[in-house]
Computed example of a mutant assay.
Amino acid sequence: MTQPDQAPLFSPYALGELQLGNRVVMASMTRGRASNAALAPTELHVEYYRQRAAAGLIFTEGTWISQRAVGFINAPGLFTERQVEGWRAVTSAVHVEGGKIFAQLAHSGAVSHPDFFNGALPVAPSAVNPGLKAFTPGGFKDTVTPRAMSLEEIASTVADYGAAAKNAREAGFDGVELHAATTYLLPEFLNSALNTRDDAYGGTAENRTRIVLEVIDALIAVWGPGRVGIKISPTLAMGGFGPTDETIETYDCLVGRLNELPVSHLQVGRALNDLSGTPVAALQDTIGYYRARFNGTLIANFGFDGASANLAVASDQADLVSFAKPFIGNPDLVRRLREGLPLAESFQETYYQGGPQGYVDYPAAP
């Protein structure tokens, strides 16, 4: 019988040139603690990430690439020198503890709100309201109909991703992950209901993936091979817009192109709901579907516990497994999983805002 500390989940892994101590990954989680006008990481962030550095790899919370990318209150950015300095303190603390950390680069797109832009509309692929809620300085508010991006704005946004990637290098990160999951700008481009463009960035699977691949190219130009990854969640609904008849073709096109690029990994959010009768029923086993189609390192995300994560690695369904909520209340999650210790509960009311409480005050197991 395999002992917990000998289980595949806790074995080392070579992510390109990076040597990870185990295959437990800390997934990105927006926590809303950059409560300063500069949207810069603080000593709270340093302690939060330091406490969790035993993970084989940490992904930061979604981090804004520019002021125009902002879409959630008190989430940090990577577009000013002060933000770079704040993140440099974070990466240094993680490295002192022996950990590895990637910055996840994000643009909120249509799920932002005019409150972030002095009344100006947020930008998106097309002028389609996703029908979601934006967490603004004035609380949760309904999203509005955004303004469709011009070709010049698309090019400028790609350049913003490249600039943020350079800032991530200056801040001491080990790599970057492109946020192309959940409801943000890039998944909006990939969704044919939210992207109704008839130019080079819409209308076909190849066109819908164009901006994502342009951004990946811009990130690799900064970081080189093996230091740029991407996260996707093709089965996730976006407000009133679920996956469409074009979803599988679009993501197949994207993943096929990723196989041609020197990316570090593909992180996939799996489906936990019944997809029968939907356009993406073939993605019910989301991880297995993309395992068969992606040639590189696959990170499985969403809804795993220690047993299911270990089974995913042991059965070669995934190379690494990322955990989100369990890391909130369990800074020592790796040890708890390895030793079979019970997991502590976390407090949902402190997930997205607050100070030290519910952020850096969860104790390690005795």
Rank of each mutant, 00 (worst) to 15 (best):
I73Q: 15
N74D: 14
N74K: 06
N74E: 14
E81P: 10
Q83V: 12
Q83A: 03
G86S: 01
W87N: 06
R88C: 10
S92F: 07
A93D: 09
V96Y: 04
K100L: 12
F102G: 00
A103N: 04
A103F: 02
A103E: 09
Q104V: 04
Q104H: 02
L105S: 08
A106E: 13
S108Y: 07
S108H: 11
G109W: 10
V111Q: 12
H113A: 07
P114Y: 03
P114V: 03
A120P: 10
L121Q: 07
P122E: 10
V123C: 13
S126A: 05
N129Y: 11
N129P: 09
P130C: 08
G131F: 08
G131Q: 12
L132N: 03
F135G: 07
T136F: 08
P137K: 07
G138V: 06
G139F: 01
G139Q: 11
T143F: 01
V144G: 06
R147C: 07
R147W: 05
A148E: 10
M149S: 03
L151K: 15
L151Q: 15
E153P: 09
V158K: 03
Y161G: 02
A163I: 14
N167W: 09
F173C: 08
D174C: 13
V176P: 01
L178P: 00
H179V: 02
H179S: 00
A181P: 04
T182M: 13
T183H: 15
P187K: 04
F189E: 03
F189V: 06
L190H: 02
L190W: 01
N191A: 06
T196Y: 04
D198S: 15
D198W: 02
A200P: 06
